[in-house]
């Protein structure tokens, strides 16, 4: 102690530059103050709604499946068929787009076009795409199915392309060295490497498509969403609770079986 210089130690901060660090902190704080300040919340309305909220929560204790069973079963069936067809078609179409969007396989013009398709289909939320397709194809599950096909292509093709780009290049090189054609290269060098994950992602997308199919009905694109929307509009919370429980149950079954399928294809 006496006379000896003591050395202090502090954890070096995550962002080294103090100006940048404090700038970010201050900016974040300023943003939060501004953002929260600009929220106009009608607390009286919220308080009034609490009672309704409680009614909804308690509706889960006694969901009403029977009251509108016809509409519910029809809606669920529509959602399921939309899910199956859109996933099958979307995955099939995603394969060529994904191959085209992999830089190590596709020439530049093809790459640019395929990446463009992916970016466009991923930027817009499914519901927005659904609005346009409902205008074109009319109300009903066809518009919903096409919406989900578009969304599936964007999702699957992007992940497939990334997988192909990060696959082991030496296996591809070996197939090229045997004198194989482009298709043989895909079949022997790429397919075995990306297939297990691709199957897993397809099953995952099936799951997502079901959940989305429950939503796009709100804008008229078929599925259980329309029934759900009506139930909320009429404050039929017991029916809404029943529909939500069915959705949750199906999602859980899908998730359980998808885990099973993914393990099998490892």
């Amino acid at each position: 102690m006496n006379g000896q210089a003591t050395q202090t130690w502090r954890l070096p901060p995550f962002i080294a530059n103090p100006w940048l660090r404090w700038g970010i902190y201050l900016g974040a704080l300023l943003y939060l103050v501004l953002a929260i300040g600009s929220l106009h919340i009608n607390w009286a309305r919220v308080a009034e709604g609490m009672e309704r909220g409680w009614r909804f929560v308690s509706a889960f204790a006694r969901p009403n499946f029977a009251g509108r069973w016809g509409e519910i079963s029809e809606g669920i069936l529509e959602s399921l068929t939309m899910t199956v067809t859109s996933t099958a078609i979307g995955v099939a179409l995603a394969v060529p787009v994904g191959l085209g969007a992999a830089r190590n396989l596709a020439p530049l013009p093809v790459y640019v076009v395929c990446r463009g398709i992916i970016a466009l289909s991923r930027t817009f939320q499914e519901v927005i795409i659904a609005i346009l397709f409902v205008k074109m194809f009319g109300f009903g599950p066809l518009a919903g199915m096409i919406t989900l096909v578009v969304a599936t292509i964007g999702f699957m093709a992007k992940l497939l392309a990334e997988d192909i780009e990060s696959s082991d290049p030496s296996q591809l090189e070996a197939m090229r060295a045997t004198g194989g054609s482009w298709w043989q290269l895909i079949n022997y060098g790429v397919q075995p490497q990306v297939m297990p994950r691709f199957i897993g992602l397809s099953v995952y997308r099936l799951d997502i498509n079901f959940r989305e199919s429950a939503v796009i009905g709100i804008v008229g694109a078929g599925g259980i969403g329309a029934t759900l929307n009506t139930a909320f509009d009429r404050y039929e919370f017991d029916t809404a609770a029943a529909i939500l429980l069915v959705i949750i149950a199906i999602v859980m079954v899908a998730e359980y079986s998808s885990g099973h399928i993914r393990r099998r294809f490892q």
Binding site: L39, E48, G49, R52, A214, V215
Partner: peptide, 28 residues
Amino acid sequence: IVSSRSINSLIWALLLVTVVGPGVLAGI
């Protein structure tokens, strides 16, 4: 976790709009 994941944010919004009224709060 599962119930939160199974229900799309738009459905949550649908529900919350009837509870807390339309507006940004329901969205958040």
